[in-house]
Amino acid sequence: MTKQQANWSPYDNNGGTCVAIAGADYCVIAADTRMSTGYSILTRDYSKISKLADKSMMASSGFQADVRALQKLLAARHSIYQHQHNKQMSCPAMAQLLSNTLYYKRFFPYYAFNVLGGLDNEGKGCVFTYDAVGSYERVGYSSQGSGATLITPFLDNQLKSPSPLLLPAQDAVTPLSESEAIDLVKTCFVSATERDIYTGDKLEIVILNADGICREYMDLRKD
């Protein structure tokens, strides 16, 4: 029998879009809940946001199986950290751990595009943005995944954050209030859903602030 299939690939792109915005005393992390493969939708209700510690949440798109393996690994590493230090890992520490974890698989990468959002040791909002092999940067806002090409320029335009080239360095945190940031995120996703077939179904928004964590959902187009 001759070979009928195309060569097997260990990777797939399951789509999805992630956004995070840092404010002075809050952080908003959001992602849609659609999971696709090619032109097919696998499920309309799959959460891409995982809680890594009390004050850090990771939103991930890309290849679901790799994302899940990454989440499990970080959860295991965090439970060891808690046993050793009897405290929750800080968001900047988790950011470094995530980078190292991604780079550890530099030559067979996790096909995962992450944004890590949370509160730093001063209670200030922080966002870390990554590529698949672990390069990362602390920013004021970020978007990753299939809708990132549509959302990033819109956020650049709306948030007008100070240039990272300015000296002395300016704070990257956005000037928006918490509710303004949530509205902005919703607008971003509604627009991305119109043009990106891999984004849609439902939007999950996680808000981190001094009061703790709260979740919000909004329906998106299902086509």
Binding site: S9, P10, Y11, D12, N14, M35, T37, S40, L42, T43, D45, Y46, F63, Q64, A65, R68, A69
Partner: peptide, 16 residues
């Protein structure tokens, strides 16, 4: 390839 999820109704291959 290890992609997994839960749903109220699932179908594989042509079924999807």
């Amino acid at each position: 390839i290890g992609v997994h999820y839960e749903d109220n109704h699932v179908a594989t291959g042509f079924g999807n």
